[in-house]
Design a binder for these strands. Structure first.
Lengths: 337, 337
DNA sequence: CTGAAAGCGCTAACAT
DNA sequence: ATGTTAGCGCTTTCAG
């Protein structure tokens, strides 16, 4: 019923092989033949079967993208970049979202991703345990991770230590000595690497400058807007004489929340307190948030290009760190006192 | 090299068919056999080929999701819902993003979606033209759209006319007579239905109450945060004595922008002006935005269930409208004068 | 430049 | 409960 290459062969009086070659525009086929075949295919409403092609060639022309959760700014942007590059290459994108209901991560891995449905995998900020790594290795697909560095896997992403150093450099340069850090774990605890790296980077950058890293100024904002609001509210409700002059947030989404908390607490930014984040979120640009901006979309494209190259038998050399750039806006200034 | 069902057949001394059945846990297979086969499969590091299975059965166990652009709140949430339901059913999700570079929409359709890689399609707020419809029909896959009603296709989504009526009912009930509308086209102009419906709904709801719909109070915010900020800035820069007492936004993202524009213009909300939106965006909850909330995730799940049912030969009856609910927070109040 | 034939790895009757 | 036999729709040597 759903007809294939065969019918168009009979109609044109050609052989299946020629039709197949013509459809793919192979150079060994006469131009006239190509035209004819394509025309007939159109008339007949021919729809190719990727399964059959995949079986025959061993290539699915699709790559999988694994995300811990789907609704985070960074992931969405990166996904856009990956998609763009894949589309350009004529590849489809299969999305594996681990954060679903129950987040039954293990099963998701085995049940679907291991089915050879894709030729390669891009993992977004995912830290795999030994078993998971081993299982994915079975497929022998090229894999690359965006975000946190993952042991044994190629990685695309910013240098988190450098990013935090840049941020604290900016704040310290402005004269801040009392700065709080807002970080914390992603709620599902799936991406431990980046949060830790940033917290450590913050602490290092502070200590290098002889500045205090106070336990009670290491806040948890779960990397979300609401978390930032809550943490900010908590911080600003404390003894005003002991208030930090700046709050450094490990993500713009949290920083946006802190901005709101500050305005609710009647504090002016940057008058009473400076606030900055990391990411380059669009909302930050309009509210004047100082940040260390990165380009997740570019990272997505780079990662996609890398897997695609590897799928095509290319080399698998290490990737350069993604650029990040200090963007000074109006949420940071020299402390008052 | 990449071994298959055959090797595990030889190792166990069983036939390919039995192995195939055992792997899928079919009831006609002895439990002991199932165990043995699974164990051997594990030991051998067997990875099934979805292409082969797909070719043999004609089912890919995957559904495609087409989005106009990926980075919109509504789409991301809906995608999450679709994914959850698909995963539950053991289906993979293939993402088709039309908004990529150049947004070469036509080619995207033909080149990929038509390859029988999926068993069904969920279209997010997409309005198809005749050619596109015809082309997609070729695949004979079940299709459903979320968001704007699309001629000839089943649809999941809120009743936009009812939603706007609810919103204006709330505002008018508070005593507002001068209300501005912030809508506009999505920048790519891909989803015309919803914006139009909401604008019409607004106008109807106003007229029904004998309220004026002024041309100069029909604003364009391109359905984005930045667009909302810009439109708000423009509106609040006009003659204060002629300022509307409320701004009704067709999406929360735009309303959030208007909130910011108001605070920048030194206006208090809801003191000087009331603001409300549509959607139920998380940020709105924390900033106190009144809205008519919908649940895109639930809509995604419903749509996924519907295609899946149809894929399984189920019926294709019409779907009920998705619920939407007025959520009154602190951004709306009775007008001052 | 085109054709014939042999699979790709799995599933599905149809036996047994 | 398990084995046999054909394919699924396309690609790919190998021959013309």
């Amino acid at each position: 019923m759903p007809m294939g290459i065969q019918e168009i062969a009979t109609v044109t009086g050609l052989s299946k092989s020629t039709v197949s070659r013509a459809l793919r525009g192979m150079p060994t086929v006469a131009d006239a033949t190509i035209d004819q075949v394509r025309r007939v295919a159109d008339e007949l409403g021919y729809v190719p079967s990727s399964a059959a092609a995949g079986l025959a060639t061993g290539r699915q022309r699709a790559v999988g993208v694994v995300v811990p959760v789907i609704d985070r700014w960074f992931y969405v942007r990166a996904l856009g970049g990956i998609d763009a590059e894949l589309r350009r290459a004529g590849y489809d994108l299969v999305l594996y979202n681990l954060g679903g209901p129950g987040g039954d991560r293990g099963r998701a891995f085995r049940r679907s991703m291991l089915r050879h449905r894709v030729d390669g995998l891009v993992l977004l900020s995912l830290v795999l345990d030994e078993t998971e790594r081993a299982e994915l290795e079975l497929t022998r697909h090229p894999m690359i991770v965006i975000g946190g560095p993952a042991p044994g896997l190629r990685n695309v992403g910013v240098d988190d230590l450098a990013v935090t150093e840049t941020a604290i450099g900016h704040l310290a340069g402005l004269g801040h000595r009392e700065v709080a850090y807002l970080g914390g774990q992603d709620e599902d605890g799936m991406n431990v690497a980046v949060p830790y790296l940033r917290r450590d980077g913050f602490a290092d950058a502070m200590r290098v400058r002889g500045l205090d890293v106070r336990e009670d100024r290491l806040l948890d904002g779960r990397f979300s807007f609401a978390g930032g609001v809550a943490a900010g509210a908590d911080l600003f409700a404390r003894d005003p004489t002991d208030r930090p002059t700046a709050v450094f947030c490990a993500s713009d989404e949290m920083a946006l929340g802190v901005l709101l908390a500050a305005s609710r607490a009647g504090l002016s930014v940057p008058g009473d307190v400076s606030v900055m984040g990391i990411d380059g979120h669009e909302y930050g640009a309009v509210v004047g948030l100082t940040t260390v901006a990165q380009d997740p979309e570019a990272q997505g494209r780079a990662a996609a290009r890398a897997v695609l190259a590897e799928v095509d038998g290319g080399s698998a050399g290490p990737l350069p760190a993604a650029p990040a750039e200090l963007v000074v806006r109006t949420s940071t200034a020299a402390p008052r006192r």
